[in-house]
C-alpha cells in the first residue's frame, strides 16, 4: 500500500480515525477492515470504483450501519455503538448520496431543522445566501420543487448552518450539470478556506483534484491507497491501477 502520508509529510493529528472497521449488511460483508485517518482542517477524498464500500464507510461513521468489528474514534473518543443523533451532536454533519432533502418542507424549514441549537446564525446564513443564491430565491418554496443542483446546494447549506467539526459529503456532483458542479466546487473551496475538515466521496475526478488535499482509495471494502491528492492526480499509471482509468479520461 502506498502511504506517503505516514512517510515524511507533517500532519496534524487525525480528527477521525477508523481502525480495522468491518461492516456487515445482512449476509454481505461490505467493509473488510477499513483503516483511515482524517486529518483536521483538510479535505480528504474517498475514491474508488462503484461498490468499493465508500458510502458504507460514510454510513458506518454516522452510525446508520453499525460496525461489526473495529474502532472509530472521533476527537479521541470512540463512536462505535453510539446512535446516529449522538454522533451528529458530537459534531459530524452528513450530506448523504441522495441529499436527504425534506421535499414537503420549505427551504427555510429544512434549514430551520438543521439549526439544532436555536435560531440560525444570521452571518452564516448571509454567507450561505451569497454562496448559494438560489436558496434565498426559493426560501419559502417546498424543497421538493428545487432542481437537482439546488437540492444539493440546500443539502450542503443544511450541513454547515450548524457549526460542526467534520463534514461528510457523499457524491455531491452526482447527476449534476457541469455549471452546477463548478458552483459547488467553488462553494467547497470556500468551506475549505475557513478550515473545515471534510471527508468527501466523489466520482468526478476533476472536482476531486480541484478540492482534495489528501486521498484514500477503496477497493473491495478496504483502503488500498492513501496519499496526497496532488500525487495521485499526477500519476496516471497509479490512477489506472487504482481506479480503472485515468483522471484525464474523465474530463
Amino acid at each position: 500500500m502506498s502511504d506517503r502520508l505516514t512517510h515524511g509529510t507533517p500532519l496534524r493529528p487525525p480528527l477521525l480515525s477508523l481502525s480495522g472497521v468491518h461492516t456487515h449488511i445482512g449476509q454481505y460483508h461490505i467493509l473488510q477492515g477499513v483503516d483511515l485517518d482524517i486529518p483536521e482542517g483538510q479535505l480528504t477524498m474517498l475514491l474508488g470504483r462503484n461498490g468499493a464500500g465508500k458510502t458504507t464507510t460514510m454510513r458506518t461513521i454516522m452510525g446508520l450501519w453499525q460496525p461489526s468489528r473495529g474502532e472509530i474514534r472521533f476527537d479521541g473518543a470512540g463512536l462505535a455503538g453510539l446512535p446516529t443523533p449522538e454522533i451528529a451532536r458530537r459534531g459530524i454533519a452528513y450530506v448523504p448520496e441522495n441529499m436527504g432533502i425534506f421535499g414537503a418542507l420549505t427551504v427555510q424549514e429544512n434549514m430551520h431543522l438543521a439549526a439544532r441549537s436555536g435560531p440560525m446564525d444570521s452571518a452564516r446564513l448571509d454567507w450561505l445566501f451569497e454562496v448559494f443564491p438560489a436558496l434565498k430565491k426559493f426560501w419559502k418554496s417546498p424543497a421538493g420543487s428545487l432542481s437537482g443542483g439546488q437540492k444539493q446546494m440546500l443539502a450542503i447549506a443544511r450541513a454547515v448552518i450548524e457549526p460542526s467539526r467534520l463534514l461528510l459529503i457523499d457524491e455531491p456532483t452526482k447527476g449534476l450539470a457541469p455549471a452546477i458542479v463548478s458552483a459547488l466546487t467553488g462553494a467547497i473551496l470556500q468551506l475549505k478556506s475557513f478550515g473545515a475538515t471534510i471527508l468527501m466521496v466523489e466520482q468526478n475526478f476533476a472536482m476531486a483534484r480541484a478540492v482534495g488535499d489528501t486521498v484514500a482509495v477503496m477497493d473491495d471494502g478496504r483502503i488500498v491507497h492513501r496519499g496526497l491528492m496532488a500525487d495521485l492526480a499526477a500519476d496516471k499509471a497509479l490512477q489506472e491501477r487504482l481506479l480503472g482509468l485515468s483522471m484525464d479520461m474523465h474530463q
Binding site: 446508520l64 446512535p83 451528529a88 448523504p96 436527504g100 425534506f102 421535499g103
Partner: peptide, 10 residues
Amino acid sequence: ENSEMVESLG
C-alpha cells in the same frame, strides 16, 4: 419523509 436524515441532523 426521511427518518434517517432526521437522525443524521441530531
